[in-house]
Structures are given as structure tokens and as C-alpha cells.
Design a protein around this nucleic acid. Structure first.
Length: 760
DNA sequence: GAGCACTGC
């Protein structure tokens, strides 16, 4: 063996020379006499540099329960307190209980107690943590300790400690601007910097000035502590230690050209050379994950029964829950008693970074990428881009290896690139999003001066301008930027402003019942995934067997797999034809919803018609919530007679009243241009139209292999000048084909008016 | 004729 090769190989080895790297070096040095060895040679192309790095904070700080007295003292003397601690510190369950013991929540009105609020970014967390705390305190959930999330309020007059999502607290602030029912507010997982958390930050800073009796505790992971401290005017900072095991971090010596290939190679290396323990691989999306799973199975399969058996499990959010559960299965047993141990290999998106925790993970492979949302205010488009993760995210990923025992994390990038290229934090969501909805919420909260609002990270002025502009066009804000009556009602809907607008005006078009259904279906579109027409699974082509399997969530997978691929295909096509509406996808969604209700939400019917029952159920839930809000504002629930020729026309007009800024025009060249922005776009192939309409409204603009508009419906040019003349004001319109068409339409309308005047 | 990271109200 050459010294050169030996040196490189030994870099992989940090434990001792008998395990991983010893085997590796033997294999590298070996002549490749059998399949196993040559297989390894191929995968073991590049060596690793290694650093040893402890995630586990040395016990400089006392565990949370030993700092109780100090915590309460600091809280007593300060209005705001920042508490930092890694996962497993127990702060989420302990701190609220300390507060509860020490803080006086009695009010002059003996019947009314004040509450302590503890926010979480996710519903499941709010629910599960509150349950755990209720158990620890030996009370019934929903009584002294409760939770409140969308669609479920599990709290009562007795509740003194309430867990809720950050979005829910923000909603409450809309009706209770000083949050007067709370004595202490604890913002947990603040480092995640969700949109709602960021808005709450600025809002609470104001509220604290007006409510000297209110206390705020900001709980976060360590990395941004100083920034938080500076933002909250130098509030005291306390630390509690986490309880993670040490994790060794390895870097590659050279950058990897192909991270997918490198990730698979590393999986095989670990499987061959490392002791027992499951592997977690972070990749960016569904397709990539499914591809990687196939390749890992194949590569390890090629190694024969010299190596332990593996169970490769994909994990991403659109995977049906039953299949997500597989991540909790135990690893496969060894093939024979003395054989090498089996291993579970989870290949996951970022969902495993924060939302889902898998025990038994000892090895983490981090290629350093994730899909991230970016917003381009110039063309008003949000898109997903594969981009490098932040240091904070890399840290979080490696921590996943040390939950149950000491672990290892393999970063598929160089140490230099970690320190020089990765930004310290992921840009907070508020800097990466379309803020139309957020601005509407802020206005409703009484924040008039957005420019001087104390954002921890102020969004780009252009993004705010775009949001104000959209809200002004929708009539939610007047020309001075003040919330209108209409805007006030719109802000109450948990929907994007365009959708709220179409809902609020739908009674004027005599079709609010139908618009409610369309809105609910559109807002639950993500549940069904894979087709633009949410709620049902049919596509006319390209759908493979695996995907159909995944989509059929309501039935036993085994039953479905008996169906031959072409049979499934044919059935899917027929199902699609059954619901399809030639005027557009929105109307197709409506048809699906109606059919679902007409068939009494029958699971068997859903199965036979390729309808995603889970998505429909969720949409129905949303619809009920929207109906309640409509009733609160006395908005009429009405429908045009189904046999009237205006039935669908009214629905399409109402949709246009909200979505008049998302219109595309078919040019003579045969492609579509979005109005005003003049972006070349294509109808997404999933659309159900049988023709190319001159004008369409679209629900989404997506940038993938091309610029697509997805979920489209045919509308008439005349309606543009009738329904949204303020937006289609030609004095302020870029010169283009659409403009010339509109000019003719305006002239036509003018002539019609004159004619009717003359007739009188 | 293509494909959606993750949340939340």
C-alpha cells in the first residue's frame, strides 16, 4: 500500500484502527479480487478530513431545574428575558411550570384568571408538549393546562397555562391588541424565525411598553442569542445545557462534484465499515429522495450477503402518514445469528431537521443543500431553489446523530467551505416571502407605519411596496395606506388577500357557496400534491405506479398494488374525465368537491374515483371555518341556479374579482404573457382545458423547468374592463398585444353605453 | 406534456 493512499485513508479514522477506517484501508489497498472489495473501491473515491467537535455543551451551566430560583429572580426583576438552550434541555416543559408557580395570575375579578402563553411554531408540538406538561402536573388536558391550534381549542375557563402556535397568538392579537388575557408570554423555538414569530417580536416590543405588568420570555437555540439580546434592549440572557451526546463531525477534503452520488457512496461506506446504528441522509426533495433510495438499495444489493441487510426509508411531508410511520420501524435483523447487523437508512428532506425526530440515528449525512423559498418582488413570484444551507442548519442536522448515543456526522463539503461559504443563519422567512398577507395582518394590528416598524430583520422596501400595492388594488387599503372596511373583513380570513377578496365579494356575484368550496380546495391543494387539481389523483400521463401507490392513501397498499399499471392509468384517466370542466381547473376542483359531498364523503367512492379523501376532508374543514367567518360578517351564502347559464359565469367573474392581477393573455405567437409584468409563461401540462383560451386567470406561477402557470381558468376580456378597470387602466399599462386588445374592448363597452343611452 | 422544502391562520 502506498503511503499516499494510507495517509488519505487514515483521515477517515478517528476511532481506532480496528474499525471503520482499518477496513476501509484494507479494502482500498486490496487488489479487488471479489465483488465486495471492488464495489467499495468505487465508492470510496475520496477521503475525508476530520475534526472532532462536541455539540454537547460541557456542563459549565447548570441544568434547567437547578437554575429555577435564579430564573425566577431574573424574571421578577426584568420584563424580558432570553433563555438559550439546545434540544433536550427541558426548557419547553420546565420553564412554563416555573413561571406558573411563581407568577401571580389572579385578577381583581376573582372569576377571571390571567394565563401564561407558550408558543410553538408547529401544531403537533403545541399539542404534544401541553399533553406532557398536563401529565407532569397531574391535571386533565384542557383544564389547567391546555392548547389552542387551528381547528382545535383544547382550553377552558380553568386554563392557566396555554400552549399555542405562534400563528394562533398572532390571530388573538388581532382582537386583543394588548394581549390582555396573558400575564407572561413565552416564545419558544424563536430561532426558527417563522413569519408569525417575527411579527410577534415587533408587536410584543410595543405591547410591553404599554403593559408594564406583562413579561416576555424568549427561548431559543444558542446561535442567535446575542442578536436577540440586542434586539430586546439588552435583556438578560440565561443559558441551560442541552442533553445531546457528542457528535463527531467529518468534512470532505475536496469539494464533491455530485452530492447525490457522494451521499450514496457515504451510505455504503458507513454500512460497510461502521458499527451498528441507523443512518439519516438529508436530501432536497421527493424525486431526489426516491431516486437515492433506489440507488442505495441497488448498491447494497450488489454487495451480496456479505453485508448486513438494510431497510431504506424515504421521508418527506407529502408522503402519506402510513408510509411516514415506517421511519419508526426497527432496523432489519441480521441475516443469521453471527452475521453483520441490519441497518435502517432514512433518506429525508428537511422535515427530519426540526419537525420529526427519529430515535436510533447514529450517523448523519449532510450534503449541505436544501430547497428554500425565495421571493422576487419584481415579478411577484415565490419559487423554490436548491441552495446551500446555513451553519445553524448544519449544526441542527448534525445534532440529529446524537440523540440517543454518541454519533457521527459526515458533511459532504470541506471544512473551509463550512467556515467561509455558509452563512451563519438561514435568512428568516420574512426576507424570503411575499408579504401581502403579513402587511394586511400588521395593518389590522394597528401598525400604520410599516417603514418604522421594529422588525428584527426589516424586509426589502420593494417587498413592502409590492404588498401595499397589491392590497391597494384589492381595495383592502385606501390610497393613504389605511385599512378599509373591506380590508378589515379580508384580514379575518386565514387566506391570501386575493382569495379573501374573491370570497368577500362573491355574494355580489350570487355564488358565495361555490367560491367557498373553490377557496377551501385551493388552500388545501398542498395536501394532495402531485397534480395541479388538488383533491383527485388523475393525470392523463406520466404517472408511474409508485406515485399512484403513494397517492392512494386511503386504501391498503397491498390491495392497490394488485392493480396493473395500465389499468390504474386507464382508471385515472376516466376519473379525470368525469370531473373535468372544460373552462378550467378551478371549476374542476369545484366538481370534485361537489361529487365528494353528493356521495356522502364515502371512502369507497373516493377510492373508486381516485379522489384523495384526506385532502377533501381537510378542505371541508377549512370550508366550515370560512363559513363561520362569512356569517360573522353577515356575508350572504348564496348560489346561482345550477341550470342557469350564468352558474359558471358568475363563479368565474367572482374569481376574477380577486385574481385580476394574475391574468395571462395568449399572444398571436402562441404563448402566454402575464399582464403588466409581461413574463412569458406556459400553461402547466396538468391543466384540464381542451383549448387555449385568449385570457386566463391562474392561481400559481411556478418556476421549474419552464415558467408555468398552474390551476388556470378561462375568463373573458370584457370582464377585465368591467370588474377591474382600476387595474386595467390603460394610461398605466405597458405597450403590448394585450393592451391593444383591451383598447378595443373599452371602445366596444363605450359604444354599447352610447347605444343604450340613445335608445332611451 | 411536468413534478411541490417546511410550516401556520
Amino acid at each position: 500500500m502506498s503511503t499516499e493512499r494510507k495517509r488519505k485513508v487514515s483521515l477517515f479514522d478517528v476511532v481506532d484502527d480496528t474499525s471503520a477506517s482499518a477496513k476501509l484501508s484494507r479494502m482500498n489497498g486490496g487488489a479487488g479480487g471479489n465483488g465486495v472489495v471492488s464495489g467499495v473501491n468505487r465508492w470510496n473515491g475520496r477521503p475525508y478530513s476530520q475534526t472532532y467537535y462536541e455539540i454537547f455543551e460541557k456542563r459549565r451551566t447548570l441544568p434547567v431545574w437547578q437554575q429555577k430560583d435564579e430564573f425566577l429572580q431574573v424574571l421578577k426583576n426584568n420584563q424580558t428575558l432570553i433563555l438559550v438552550g439546545e434540544t433536550g434541555s427541558g426548557k419547553t416543559t420546565q420553564i412554563p411550570q416555573f413561571v406558573l408557580e411563581a407568577v401571580d395570575i389572579e385578577t381583581p375579578d376573582k372569576r377571571k384568571k390571567m394565563m401564561i402563553a407558550c408558543t410553538q411554531p408547529r401544531r403537533v408540538a403545541a399539542m404534544s408538549v401541553s399533553r406532557r406538561v398536563a401529565e407532569e402536573m397531574d391535571v386533565t388536558i384542557g383544564e389547567e393546562v391546555g392548547y389552542s391550534i387551528r381547528f382545535e381549542d383544547c382550553s377552558s375557563a380553568k386554563t392557566v397555562l396555554k400552549y399555542l402556535t405562534d400563528g394562533m397568538l398572532l390571530r388573538e392579537a388581532m382582537t386583543d391588541p394588548l394581549l390582555e388575557r396573558y400575564k407572561v408570554i413565552i416564545l419558544d423555538e424563536a430561532h426558527e424565525r417563522t413569519l408569525a414569530t417575527d411579527v410577534l417580536f415587533g408587536l410584543l416590543k410595543e405591547v410591553l411598553k404599554n403593559r408594564p405588568d406583562l413579561k416576555l420570555v424568549v427561548m431559543s437555540a444558542t446561535l442567535e442569542a446575542e442578536k436577540f439580546q440586542a434586539y430586546f434592549n439588552g435583556a438578560p440572557l440565561m443559558k441551560v445545557p442541552g442533553r445531546l451526546h457528542p457528535v463527531e463531525i467529518f468534512y470532505t477534503q475536496e469539494p464533491e462534484r455530485d452530492y447525490l452520488e457522494a451521499a450514496i457512496r457515504t451510505v455504503v461506506q458507513i454500512h460497510l465499515c461502521e458499527p451498528q446504528g441507523d443512518i439519516l441522509v438529508f436530501l432536497t426533495g421527493e424525486e431526489e429522495i426516491e431516486d437515492a433510495c433506489r440507488k442505495i438499495n441497488k448498491e447494497i444489493g450488489n454487495l451480496g450477503d456479505q453485508v448486513g441487510p438494510v431497510k431504506v426509508v424515504p421521508l418527506y411531508s407529502t408522503l402519506p402518514p402510513a408510509m411516514q410511520q415506517k421511519i419508526f420501524d426497527p432496523p432489519p435483523p441480521p441475516l443469521d445469528e453471527l452475521g453483520p447487523p441490519g441497518r435502517k437508512i432514512v433518506v429525508s428532506t428537511n422535515i427530519a431537521e426540526t419537525s420529526l425526530t427519529i430515535d436510533g440515528i447514529v450517523y448523519v449525512i449532510d450534503p449541505g443543500f436544501a430547497k428554500q423559498k425565495v421571493y422576487n418582488p419584481r415579478v411577484r413570484v415565490e419559487s423554490l431553489l436548491v441552495s446551500p444551507i446555513s451553519k445553524a442548519s448544519a449544526h441542527q442536522r448534525s445534532g440529529r446523530a446524537g440523540r440517543t448515543q454518541p454519533g457521527k456526522c459526515f458533511r459532504l463539503y470541506t471544512e473551509k467551505s463550512f467556515s467561509n461559504d455558509l452563512q451563519p443563519q438561514t435568512y428568516p422567512e420574512i426576507l424570503r416571502s411575499n408579504l401581502a398577507n403579513t402587511v394586511l395582518t400588521l395593518k389590522k394590528l394597528g401598525i400604520d407605519d410599516l417603514v418604522h416598524f421594529d422588525f428584527m430583520d426589516p424586509p426589502a422596501p420593494e417587498t413592502l411596496m409590492r404588498a401595499l400595492e397589491v392590497l391597494n388594488y384589492l381595495g383592502a387599503l385606501d390610497d393613504e395606506g389605511n385599512l378599509t372596511k373591506l380590508g378589515e373583513i379580508m384580514s379575518e380570513f386565514p387566506l391570501d388577500p386575493q382569495m379573501s377578496k374573491m370570497l368577500v365579494v362573491s355574494p355580489e356575484f350570487n355564488c358565495s357557496n361555490e367560491i367557498l368550496s373553490v377557496s377551501a380546495m385551493l388552500s388545501e391543494a398542498r395536501v394532495s400534491s402531485a397534480t395541479a387539481s388538488s383533491g383527485f389523483y388523475a393525470t392523463s400521463g406520466g404517472m408511474n405506479h409508485r406515485k399512484l401507490l403513494r397517492l392512494m392513501q386511503v386504501v391498503a397498499v397491498s390491495q392497490f398494488s394488485l392493480m396493473k399499471k395500465w389499468e390504474a392509468q386507464k382508471a385515472a384517466d376516466e376519473a379525470k374525465a368525469r370531473f373535468s370542466h372544460i373552462d378550467g381547473d378551478h371549476l374542476t376542483l369545484l366538481n370534485v368537491y361537489h361529487a365528494y359531498k353528493q356521495n356522502s364523503e364515502d371512502p369507497q367512492w373516493c377510492y373508486e374515483n381516485f379522489v384523495n379523501q384526506r385532502a377533501l376532508k381537510a378542505a371541508d374543514n377549512v370550508r366550515q371555518q370560512l363559513v363561520r367567518i362569512m356569517s360573522r360578517f353577515n356575508l350572504k351564502l348564496c348560489s346561482t341556479d345550477f341550470n342557469s347559464r350564468d352558474y359558471y359565469i358568475n363563479i368565474r367573474k367572482a374569481m376574477l374579482a380577486g385574481y385580476f392581477m394574475q391574468v395571462a393573455h395568449l399572444e398571436r405567437t402562441g404563448h402566454y404573457l402575464t399582464v403588466k409584468d409581461n413574463q412569458v409563461v406556459h400553461l402547466h401540462p396538468s391543466n384540464c382545458l381542451d383549448h387555449k383560451p385568449e385570457w386566463v386567470i391562474y392561481n400559481e406561477y411556478v418556476l421549474t423547468s419552464r415558467n408555468f402557470i398552474r390551476t388556470v381558468t378561462d375568463i373573458r376580456g370584457e370582464w377585465l374592463v368591467d370588474i377591474a378597470p382600476h387595474y386595467y387602466d390603460l394610461t398605466n399599462f405597458p405597450s403590448c398585444e394585450a393592451k391593444r386588445v383591451l383598447e378595443r374592448l373599452y371602445k366596444k363597452r363605450e359604444k354599447e353605453r352610447e347605444d343604450s343611452k340613445n335608445r332611451k
